[in-house]
């Protein structure tokens, strides 16, 4: 059944008594939350969210699978992924080198849209399920090929406790401890 417009009207409540009732309702609701706040704050450095495997975090290259097609660089909307030319010994002509293209990524620009991962014809790119990594300077965020081929360090994991949020009917979200080793 399709949509339909329905005329609604504001609840009409007027008068001194209704005002009084409104005040009481508001204050008692406040007191209710003062007693049981139902909060789900993440105490961040001490706890961190263990993200689902489908999360679009940092992108890493599996060099073995890469076929140097530059699809990822072509689709990157932020011009973060670029191809570099590296000389490499040519297997067919020993003693000679040939130029090969490899993707590198600049995390100053990356917007984590995941287009490159989705477009890669051999699944050579993959997301790691974390994204909170701090760099001391901007130059470090411009990765070279070697950095790009292994997952970045994740210091938060060594300092904090992994937690997960699950949707709950009563409290909105509930923070639970994530099982170790669970992916």
């Amino acid at each position: 059944m399709p949509a339909r417009p329905v005329a609604k009207a504001l609840p009409k409540r007027r008068g001194l008594f209704e005002g009084f009732k409104g005040n009481i309702a508001a204050i008692s609701l406040g007191v209710k939350y003062l007693i049981d706040p139902k909060r789900f704050t993440l105490i961040y450095p001490n706890e961190y969210i263990k993200l689902d495997p489908g999360y679009r975090g940092f992108i890493v290259l599996e060099k073995k699978k890469c076929i140097n097609c530059s699809s990822c660089a072509r689709i990157c909307p932020a011009a973060a992924m670029k191809m570099i030319k590296l000389p490499e010994p040519d297997p067919r002509h020993p003693g000679k080198t040939k130029i090969k293209l490899w993707p590198v990524i600049n995390y100053q620009r990356c917007i984590f849209c995941g287009y490159c991962v989705d477009v890669c014809p051999t699944e050579a790119l993959y997301h790691v399920p974390y994204h909170d990594i701090v760099y001391e300077n901007l130059a470090e965020m411009d990765w070279d090929l070697e950095t790009f081929t292994k997952p970045p360090d994740y210091p938060t994991a060594s300092e904090g406790m992994p937690v997960k949020y699950i949707v709950d009917e009563e409290r909105g979200l509930v923070k639970v401890k994530a099982q170790e080793g669970e992916q």
């Binding site: 990157c76 011009a79 191809m83 570099i84 293209l101």
Partner: peptide, 8 residues
């Protein structure tokens, strides 16, 4: 102009 996809 868009940047080229190659990096020198």
């Amino acid at each position: 102009k868009e940047e080229p996809i190659f990096k020198s």
